[in-house]
């Protein structure tokens, strides 16, 4: 196993192809629950968890059911179905077996049921041609990237809250402006990872 490629996949998915700030998927929770650091962290950890579970469930389905049957076009609808079921199942199971974890993640799990970032990760893993291990590493990276974006942005938002914003920009407008600036900053990572492994 070439570990170099796994590290490469991990780093690119965290920094270069950050789902929120570079691919603009999962903007809804990014803007919705990034007001406070503890909420942002809770949401980020839940997303990591769900992304990994979803990839573990969807990759075999694609490889061993859809591709042999030539039903690649069913990918999106089937993945939505699988992810929604999986998240619901996880929620029920967590409630029963690990109530403490359910209390901290439970609020966010329904929000992620059909989150586009989760769906995006599972589909991109297929289109990028990753094998199973690579897919898992990629989804871990994407989840970490989501967590990173959430945590960074909750810091930015708490600074915005304390600053004097022009009346017309108050609320969502200034948040979107700030998000675009954070996103610009992440473009800087583009060259770094490629050159690390050059």
């Amino acid at each position: 196993m070439d570990y170099k490629i796994l590290i490469y996949i991990l780093l690119t998915s965290v920094f270069v192809n950050n789902y929120v700030l570079q691919r603009f998927l999962g903007i809804c929770p990014f803007l919705g629950v990034s007001k406070k650091l503890d909420q942002a962290t809770g949401m980020g950890i839940s997303v990591i968890f769900v992304m990994i579970m979803a990839t573990a469930a969807t990759w075999p389905v694609q490889k061993y059911i859809l591709e042999p049957l030539g039903l690649g076009y069913l990918q999106t609808i089937l993945f939505i179905l699988i992810i929604a079921t999986l998240v619901q199942f996880i929620e029920i199971a967590l409630k029963k077996f690990i109530p403490a974890l359910h209390k901290s993640l439970g609020v966010y799990l329904p929000l992620i049921t059909t989150n586009c970032a989760v769906l995006g990760v599972t589909i991109n893993n297929i289109t990028d041609g990753y094998n199973f291990i690579e897919s898992m590493v990629s989804s871990l990276g994407c989840g970490l990237g989501f967590l990173l974006a959430m945590v960074l942005f909750s810091g930015v938002r708490s600074r915005i809250e304390g600053s004097d914003v022009p009346e017309a920009f108050k609320g969502l407008p200034i948040t979107l402006v700030a998000a675009s600036i954070v996103s610009l900053a992440f473009f800087g990572f583009g060259g770094i990872v490629d050159n690390l492994f050059a």
Binding site: L69, L71, L78, L81
Partner: peptide, 12 residues
């Protein structure tokens, strides 16, 4: 296609 979706739905 219908069968695959149906079966997956039923299993879910």
């Amino acid at each position: 296609a219908v069968a695959v979706l149906l079966v997956t739905g039923v299993i879910a």
